[in-house]
Simulated assay, not measured.
Amino acid sequence: MLIDKIEVDTVKMPLVNPFETSFGKLKEKDFLIVKLFGKNHVGLGESVALPDPTYSEETTGTVSYMLEKFLIPMLFKHEIQHPDDVSTIFSPIRRNNMAKAALEGAVWDLYSKEKGIPLARALGGTQPTIDVGVSIGIEATTEQLLSKVERFLAEGYKKIKIKIKPGYDLEPLTKIRETFGYDIPLMADANSAYSLKDLSHLKKFDALNLMMIEQPLAYDDIIDHSVLQKEIKTPICLDESIHSAEDARKAIELRSCKIINIKIGRVGGLSEAKKIHNLCQSHAIPVWCGGMLEGGIGRAHNIAITSLSGFTIAGDTSASNRYWQEDIIVPEVTLSSPGEISVPTSSGIGYELNEEVIQKHLLNKKVYTS
């Protein structure tokens, strides 16, 4: 697989609603669209990095720099036989997983288009549809939160995730339970907002019958989560702590969690995501696909990886209109039935670019040739 040209577009789009977590509020998102030009097809990738280094150390700016100065020149030097080769090519570069994943995802899309098969099948996916949930940010009032939960339950979403932080946790979760019952699939995402000093408080979550509490402790921790999981019944799901299959192995051996959230950008690409999936499946650890407020390309990659059999918990890949007035792909991602999205059956990611939307929100375009 030879790559003749790479184009990187920077776009910035407003979110339908501001999205607030324990580390800040986002009203708009800038991201990179990566286009790899092969002989007959164009492979598409997307950087999922946020504008600020809050979720991780990477930002849209650092990803752009890494692509231009290091990763794109490295990719041009090699003829790629299979997308798995990309992680080996990039192995001399430490971390910068979201930058690596943006290019590697485009390679996977180009590869599957050249083979004439859906990306999901190229990855080994077998599920024709995926179950999806929603992620709800920190709301200004309990009434607004309950209104959103009611709407998303009516739309059939199969998991309700709410962001929490100290001072905004037990009360909203309890209100949801009192209003909608203790059987709806509900989880909490703490984004590293607590520590073991909060142990007595975190034990109170057990009464809420949550599917899981996601990353309650430090973003780089595995040890303290192991301590916490022994003390609480609520399953811990690790997110920010897991950057590789090796991280997942250590977390499983230490019993730091009972569930793992796989985000393609966080772990460095689809190849590593698949490794983590396979490892977790062999240890009976459920996995699901988390979201990073992706545009349509990133959303399509999430759909493809979620088609693997080990993704048994509904992910965050909800419909495009949940986040965007208009998406960068056509057709936009929609629910094929309540709480489900059909996995595309055409080659590659199964969606085309909406160039009109991209041009409307375009900030910058760079073209690189071998």
Score class of each variant (00 low, 15 high):
9 D>L: 07
194 Y>W: 15
301 H>T: 09
44 L>C: 03
79 E>W: 13
355 E>W: 11
220 D>P: 04
300 A>K: 01
259 I>V: 14
92 P>W: 01
192 S>Q: 15
341 I>R: 11
152 F>Q: 09
195 S>H: 05
226 S>M: 06
143 E>T: 08
187 M>R: 08
51 P>K: 09
224 D>A: 08
314 A>Q: 04
13 M>Y: 00
22 S>D: 08
96 N>T: 00
153 L>Y: 01
21 T>V: 00
323 Y>D: 07
316 D>W: 06
106 A>H: 05
32 L>I: 05
242 I>R: 02
183 D>V: 12
323 Y>N: 10
356 E>Y: 13
173 L>K: 03
167 G>P: 07
358 I>T: 04
339 G>Y: 00
83 P>S: 05
102 A>S: 07
135 S>L: 15
299 R>A: 06
317 T>W: 10
213 I>V: 14
120 A>D: 08
106 A>R: 05
362 L>S: 00
237 C>E: 14
87 S>T: 11
117 I>Y: 04
168 Y>H: 11
250 K>H: 10
159 K>S: 07
332 E>R: 15
73 P>L: 05
289 C>G: 08
288 W>T: 03
323 Y>T: 05
243 H>E: 15
166 P>E: 09
109 D>H: 06
333 V>R: 11
216 P>G: 05
71 L>C: 07
5 K>H: 08
229 Q>F: 10
138 I>W: 00
196 L>C: 12
78 H>S: 12
104 E>H: 06
106 A>T: 05
266 R>D: 02
95 R>H: 12
22 S>T: 12
123 L>D: 13
175 K>P: 03
73 P>W: 01
227 V>H: 10
3 I>L: 08
228 L>D: 12
151 R>F: 12
167 G>A: 04
2 L>C: 13
50 L>D: 13
282 S>D: 11
267 V>Q: 03
67 L>Y: 00
84 D>G: 07
190 A>Q: 06
92 P>N: 02
77 K>A: 14
365 K>G: 13
152 F>L: 10
36 L>T: 01
253 E>G: 09
234 T>Y: 04
283 H>R: 11
177 R>Q: 04
362 L>M: 06
224 D>R: 10
240 E>V: 02
177 R>M: 04
111 Y>V: 02
364 N>P: 11
142 T>W: 09
160 I>L: 05
158 K>Q: 09
174 T>K: 12
77 K>G: 09
344 P>Y: 10
25 K>D: 12
51 P>I: 09
128 P>S: 14
80 I>G: 00
38 G>M: 08
160 I>T: 03
130 I>P: 11
290 G>P: 03
102 A>Y: 01
343 V>D: 09
151 R>W: 09
347 S>Y: 10
141 T>V: 07
25 K>E: 15
180 F>L: 10
296 G>N: 02
215 Q>E: 04
111 Y>S: 07
339 G>Q: 05
349 I>G: 04
